[in-house]
Design a binder for these strands. Structure first.
Lengths: 234, 234
DNA sequence: GTTTGTGAACCGTTTCACAGCA
DNA sequence: TGCTGTGAAACGGTTCACAAAC
């Protein structure tokens, strides 16, 4: 029974990273992984990894570890990337074009099936081989092309409107690159990717680190610290 | 005394959103905001907002709310975006170029001061008006141009090497677009922005939502649900 | 020896509830 | 009445510790 399980937000993020590591190891010909190695690649403790994998119903062998192939398959099943996801990209600006050109996505179960833009100067052109359609065509195209997710890469002012169009057209989830919180029905999950927010978080982390090193004692291995994790010992 | 306070990861994300809302309201001419309105724009409860603002030392007026201008200034001070941050962008591929062209960043306290790439076919060209330099020039340029943060937009295979170069050159933080966990000294914070991970998180959320609606009773306002938050009543 | 699986303790964040002020 | 500030309670995720399995 695949797909059973409630996965928390941070756990979902980690699963994504475990999957990457499992794929990397599989390509290298490795057959098993330990929870510790898996954890190192995701910045998590080994016990954390075992908890995560336990939740999604994957089990390993004591003394051996987890089967790399089975692990990857199990994570894909939980995430839901066994089949191909077709996406509608709205906004053929800088971010939109970069995304459409990001060919690697195809190998990972995703596919940009249609591109939309409001500007007449862009409509009709081709972006990564796909003809740009006017946003009025969203509803019909999403249905015809069996599109599951919408990607919003438009200026913040237009984001809400586009979100409404996509939801009305029947997409099941939205990836939002616009720096604006979208108001959509809870039936359609939204994941935000926000450059500015990321930069601000980074700068805040830098500031906090500065204060620590000047105010507190110079060298102190902080508990929540990132990097080459110093979890050893038992 | 600005900058005093320990801010948790989720709190940092929210502060970033409060700042956006405060700026938006300021532009609209509004003078005060309530914690509830601020919370709605960030997907947080009102009490949460008050806690957050209390931590950074901002206080509002009972019965009135928070002063929009003072709030924005306080958040900027905590984040550390009063001054301008100069960034080194490594990787002039699709994502790199999109980022360099994202002019809005300038208005928000950030500036791409240099662009680097390894490919000889790209070095010497101009990206958003900036000449692309070879990655060997990172160390010298970062120092000369007083660059504080590095942005990694290269393929995953090269990410770690670039990270090492940036850290050696003396950047204080790294924004990483490569889908690879970087191993860097804890002294240099890293914030990851990962499209694939975001897409996978989205698809997982979609799958989970599907199961809920089919397995459980059809209509149920879930507690952790997103969207127009139904927090009313008291 | 190595590594998994898991109950229990721990910790930080979120929510609740309400006193206090405009 | 509307809204802030805050202790206390509730919640959820992480870490610990160790028995069991290889």
């Amino acid at each position: 029974m695949p797909g059973r399980a409630r996965v928390s937000r941070p756990a979902a993020e980690r699963l994504s990273l475990y999957l990457r590591e499992a794929e990397r190891l599989a390509a290298l010909g490795r057959v098993t992984v330990s929870s510790r190695q898996l954890g190192a690649s995701a910045g998590a403790a080994d016990a954390q990894v075992r908890k995560d994998l336990g939740i999604i119903g994957t089990s390993g062998q004591p003394g051996i570890g987890y089967d790399v192939a089975a692990l990857a398959a199990a994570i894909r099943a939980v995430i839901g990337v066994q089949e191909r996801w077709r996406a509608a990209l709205v906004g053929a600006g800088n971010i939109g074009r970069a995304l459409a050109a990001y060919r690697r996505l195809c190998e990972e179960g995703f596919e940009v099936a249609a591109v939309f833009d409001r500007a007449e100067s862009v409509v009709g052109r081709r972006v990564a081989g796909i003809e740009v359609l006017p946003i009025e065509a969203i509803a019909e195209t999403v249905r015809r092309e069996a599109i599951g997710i919408g990607i919003i890469a438009v200026p913040p002012e237009a984001a809400q409107e586009v979100a409404d169009l996509l939801v009305a057209a029947g997409v099941r989830g939205i990836l939002n690159f616009a720096p604006r919180r979208l108001q959509v029905t809870p039936r359609v999950p939204v994941v935000d990717v926000d450059f500015r927010s990321a930069l601000e978080r980074l700068v805040l982390a830098v500031s906090q680190r500065d204060e620590e090193s000047t105010a507190d004692r110079p060298l102190a291995a902080r508990p929540g610290a990132r990097g080459v994790d110093p979890r050893r010992k038992r």
